[in-house]
């Protein structure tokens, strides 16, 4: 019964959504932001339009979005403080993996730095760079490297909010100068965006690795009887 209802609902959604989307696609939009973006590009401080939209025109979205990321990281950490659930069994000591890591980690670090730098004039940017850096951290973790800064201490929390804090400071500087919140002085815009992006890269990676480290390890069938007894 539930299966039937859900299937009907899903089919109705697909059909109606498809029909509406098709109609919308057939009509031109009354506003075209492409022109506005192109006009404002020289004042944005960067050469790539997506980076300009993300970190200048619609920077408030990005600020709040990093807030969302920090909240997720924080909520994960708040779990950890109750009972450290790290399982050493998760870490392998596979020699092949260790050998690969020696090749991969420097390469991934360089790739991450490149993505960050590339963001100003082509595809790339803080998010891509942060994701690669985060993946590097996960790889290191899996490879048995302890990464001490992931202990729930001040360092981890500092890393978590660094990007957000830098962004927020830049945002409020605009207001203190008597301009709008989040407004950059035009000649500094490019530099400020690079600084924000670098700090964001670090924090994004930190949130990802932190959350990975926080998630409790796989419990096996053997764990159950003993844990029931403990409670």
């Amino acid at each position: 019964m539930k299966l039937l209802l859900v299937l009907i609902a899903a089919v109705v959604l697909t059909v109606v959504l498809g029909q509406t989307a098709w109609q919308i696609l057939a009509q031109p939009t009354p506003v075209d932001l492409r022109e506005l973006v192109a006009e404002a590009m020289p004042d944005s401080g960067v050469a790539h339009p997506i980076t300009a939209v993300l970190l200048n025109f619609r920077s408030y979205d990005t600020l709040l979005e990093i807030g969302v990321l920090v909240v997720a990281g924080m909520a994960g950490l708040s779990m950890r403080a109750v009972a450290p659930l790290e399982a050493p069994a998760m870490r392998t000591s596979d020699t092949l993996l260790q050998a690969l890591l020696r090749w991969f980690v420097p390469f991934l670090l360089v790739l991450s730095a490149y993505l960050l730098w590339a963001g100003s004039d082509r595809s790339g940017g803080a998010f891509q760079a942060g994701a690669v850096l985060g993946a590097t951290g996960v790889l290191l973790r899996l490879g048995g490297v302890p990464l001490d800064f992931l202990r729930p201490g001040l360092m981890l929390r500092l890393g978590l909010v660094l990007g957000f804090a830098v962004f927020l400071l830049v945002a409020v500087m605009g207001a203190i100068r008597g301009d709008m919140f989040l407004a950059y002085p035009q000649e500094w815009a490019g530099l400020l965006i690079v600084v924000i992006e670098a700090a964001l890269t670090l924090s994004i990676a930190m949130v990802l690795v932190g959350l990975f480290a926080v998630a409790p390890a796989q419990a096996t069938e053997r764990d159950w009887p003993s844990r029931e007894g403990k409670r």
Binding site: L33, R34, V37, P49, I50, A52, V53, L54, R58, D61, T62, E65, I66, V68, L69, V71, A72, G73, A75, G76, G125, F127, I204, V207, L208, L211
Partner: peptide, 21 residues
């Protein structure tokens, strides 16, 4: 259009945060 592409990038990060949590 760079605007929706930037929006999607923001949306991906938000979805990623929610997924990780």
């Amino acid at each position: 259009d760079p605007v929706p592409q930037a929006l999607v990038l923001t949306g991906i990060v938000v979805a990623l945060a929610a997924t990780a949590l």
